[in-house]
Amino acid sequence: MNETLVQANGLKKYFDDVHAVDDVNLNIRAGEIYGLVGSDGAGKTTTMRMLVGAILPTAGEINVCGYDVLKQVESARSQIGYLSQRFSLYEDLTVLENIRFFAEIRGLSSAEWLPRSLEILEFVGLEKFKDRRAGQLSGGMKQKLGLASALVTRPRLLLLDEPTTGVDPVTRQDFWQLVIKLVSQPATSEGVSVIISTPYMDEASRCHLVGFMKAGKIIAEDTPSNLRQRLNDRILELRGEPLRELKNIALQSEEVEEVSPFGDKLHLRVKAGASQQVIARLQKQIEARNAKINSLRVVPPSLEDIFILLTEFNHE
């Protein structure tokens, strides 16, 4: 078992009567990418801000890399890199000057910062642009510079707060490849952990461990594959036409718990063990009604299916 890098117990943050974070527990080990997944306002950013010691919890304990964040905040922070949602770069400074600035305010000596900065720029693929002003970089490159600045102190814990908001899918893919490399091949022999927040399930599926957040609480926590396992063999994909008619027919079946339209198809959630029975019966019923099936099959459940299952009884 790898060393635990983040341990939070009973973490709470109340703003007047708003329970922004309400009894969150975290246990994250070296080598793990942990996804805090939920809507804006679910408590993701507040949780991160408590982990870096930027705001004090109303209650609870936090330990990061062996330091008590409430008592030894400077020591804890020396182990943390943080890329906030609105990170700022100095647009008039070059790429290298930006990193130098972050390195120096974190107390790195001049002998240390230059070789390390160059190494990090190579890692994020910005070495060719080291003398370009930050203001002249594309959105994706700014993102990578933000990441490089957060990494210059070689943190063991990296906190990324919705790092890919507004970033296109190609850039997002590149960014994720870097994050995964960071934990699978850490710069030093000590392991690294990453906590990343996102409202998107395609990002959640790339984490080792996912905590679904809703109204300040973690409502479920597991690996993406274990989470999906909860609805294994219970999601059917139905394609055909007209979709509206197919939806009505499917809804009449007692074994069908939910029907969701998805572009050119429907997803049906069926009761455990009922998938084959539903497939056989729906095929007959749909033919009898002169509607058309193009395909009807069991598909692997998505994290989206799981999230909806977990939250359907407490809508906003």
């Binding site: 939920g38 809507s39 409202p199 809703k214 339209p261 999230f307 939250t311 359907e312 809508h315 906003e316």
Partner: peptide
């Protein structure tokens, strides 16, 4: 629907589907 969870996203898209219908 950027920034919302799947439950809110689906509720929003239900509205969009009924507009399209």
């Amino acid at each position: 629907t950027s920034g919302v969870d799947p439950t809110a996203r689906r509720a929003f898209w239900d509205l969009i589907y009924s507009l399209a219908e």
